[in-house]
Design a protein around this nucleic acid. Structure first.
Lengths: 332, 332
DNA sequence: TTGTATGCGTTATCAT
DNA sequence: ATGATAACGCATACAA
């Protein structure tokens, strides 16, 4: 890699002159400025970023800690984060906690040594279950800003970007009751222990209560055979006339099982799931989905964090990104 | 952030003594060593990584450039890369090219200023179509090692980790012909312009040729309505008795369309697709898949690249990671 | 056993 | 208009 020193030596001028010339300082004469720039271009000089980071005490890099990236929600969020980062000349260092606390702690620990200017994260399932927050507080105490999205720890004071989990489920349930006149709506949940899972279930329950209906909840925590579980439940509870899945898998499985039972969608049973890009392609008939604006969540998160880093008097805030109910065309 | 300088000042000893003490140098007396370490622990001292990087002229960071991360294949590869990185005390900076050449070029350009010790990448679709390789060669020329996986540019001399695209399709096709006695096998492809798409198609064609059968190929380049396209094709070509999809979507769509046409799977039509973690969950009956060891690909890539960085006399190599044909239980 | 001095590549301040 | 010097934080060869 070419350095200022090398350029200076070749041109037989001082390092500082070279530096100033490259930074278009008016102190430097037109002639030497072009002379320097030409050589720099020729040798493909690029300022060493590590040196700049050391000098400026800023890395222009954000640590992104995700529970997983094979879940399409987080993949899509990451996409949004990356785009916003690029547009603001930031890089991202990505760590995956694999839903474990110790990996999350390790990543925060390792990156909080000057490697990054801030963190964007969704907390791991394990930490949320065990209500462990010390490692998060430690980062806050060390003055490195954190932005949490989706899965959030209320006790930690930091910027947050969240989804309207309660509201979206309330509205979806209400829709099924009022517009489609469903009376036996089954909620399928495999994330009951997450903050978002609880909120979604509460939204569903509230809507039912407001209409004097009884909840039906099928919990599939780490169920080995999702298909079988859903199939069995549906054959034993023939009255079910609508299903809401609060993840991106079980809704599609439910559609397949309903068809297997010889029932018609949407005539006999309505199905609403969570989904993102390709979800609707994978089911027939197309599943109705609560579409979380994952990409936007990522984008907003990065923007808010950068603001928090670069603004002097930044005030902590919590942004809610509303979901959208995408009804499949076929739902009557 | 606490620095060596601060520790030295507080203890009233020199910076270098502190540095040596923390690094367990035998030059330093037991007593001062513990004195230093205690204070360091108390103030939560952590060596500034940027400074270390500058000093060592090594970042212990790898630039990872992916076309997208919403495709589960790349998501899974990223997972493997991240794990291997963590296990080897490396960080990863992730960039997404969004399949565009200019973003790929930009990312390489920006990170090749000392930010990373090497790159792991799968080239963007656009670059592969336009056969642009200058930006890649430029990186190689600047002595920064590149490891390419999956989508590979033959002309560039670098380490490579690839999938047995030709072989896996040959074997899957052969299986359908010999074991399931299929004679009209349809290949559904939406990645014909990628190196991997070509290889897969060639494997399929070769197997058919070896058995004197005629190929049927349905190209869906950017087709707006995949469902409709497949449905129409199948209703016009009733003789089709097997389908191979070379991506992770259209296989499942095909299953749904076959059922819609009132045919039985696998009795009337066999279906094999590409898939990863959850793919088989989403179809009923479960789709047979060619399972690419995406996680392993990521892991191997990182290991090989690190070897190339840290070994003096590293020899370039190309590793082939075999796929696995996962037949669904229901296939007879 | 401890301390001094130097350099990694850059930028900024202060001479000349 | 140009150059010398210091500083960012760390590590290390070399003195003491």
């Amino acid at each position: 890699m070419t350095t200022l020193k090398e350029l200076a030596k070749l041109l037989d001028i001082s390092i500082s002159t070279v530096s100033k010339a490259l930074n278009d300082s008016h102190e430097i004469s037109e002639s030497t400025r072009t002379r320097v720039k030409e050589l720099a271009a020729e040798l493909n000089y690029r300022p060493n970023r590590i040196a700049q980071q050391l000098k400026n005490n800023k890395t222009k890099t954000i640590g992104v800690i995700l529970p997983t990236v094979t879940n399409p929600f987080f993949a899509e969020v990451l996409h949004g984060i990356e785009m916003a980062a690029t547009n603001n000349d930031y890089d991202i260092i990505v760590c995956l906690s694999n839903e474990t606390l110790h990996k999350e702690e390790r990543s925060l620990e390792l990156l909080s040594n000057g490697s990054v200017d801030g963190f964007i994260m969704a907390v791991a399932r394990e930490g949320q279950v065990k209500k462990q927050t010390k490692h998060l507080q430690a980062i806050i105490n060390s003055k490195i800003p954190i932005l949490m999205f989706d899965r959030v720890v209320n006790e930690i004071e930091c910027d947050k970007v969240i989804v309207d989990d309660f509201q979206s489920l309330y509205e979806a349930t209400q829709y099924l009751i009022e517009k489609e006149h469903r009376k036996h709506i089954l909620l399928v949940s495999n994330i009951e222990e997450l903050s978002v899972g609880k909120l979604r279930t509460e939204g569903y329950s509230k809507a039912l209560k407001d209409h004097n209906l009884k909840p039906h909840i099928l919990k599939l925590d780490n169920a080995i055979d999702v298909e079988e579980n859903i199939y069995n439940y549906l054959s034993k509870n023939k009255e079910i006339d609508a299903i809401i899945s609060i993840d991106h898998i079980t809704g599609i499985v439910a559609i397949n099982m309903i068809k297997k039972l010889g029932k018609n969608i949407p005539k006999d049973v309505s199905v609403i799931g969570f989904g993102y890009e390709h979800t609707q392609l994978l089911s027939s008939p197309k599943i109705s989905i609560i579409h979380q604006k994952a990409h936007k969540i990522g984008e907003m998160s990065m923007k808010l964090l950068i603001d928090s880093i670069s603004t002097e008097d930044h005030k902590l805030q919590t942004i809610v990104v509303p979901s959208e109910l995408n009804l499949s065309g076929s739902t009557k």
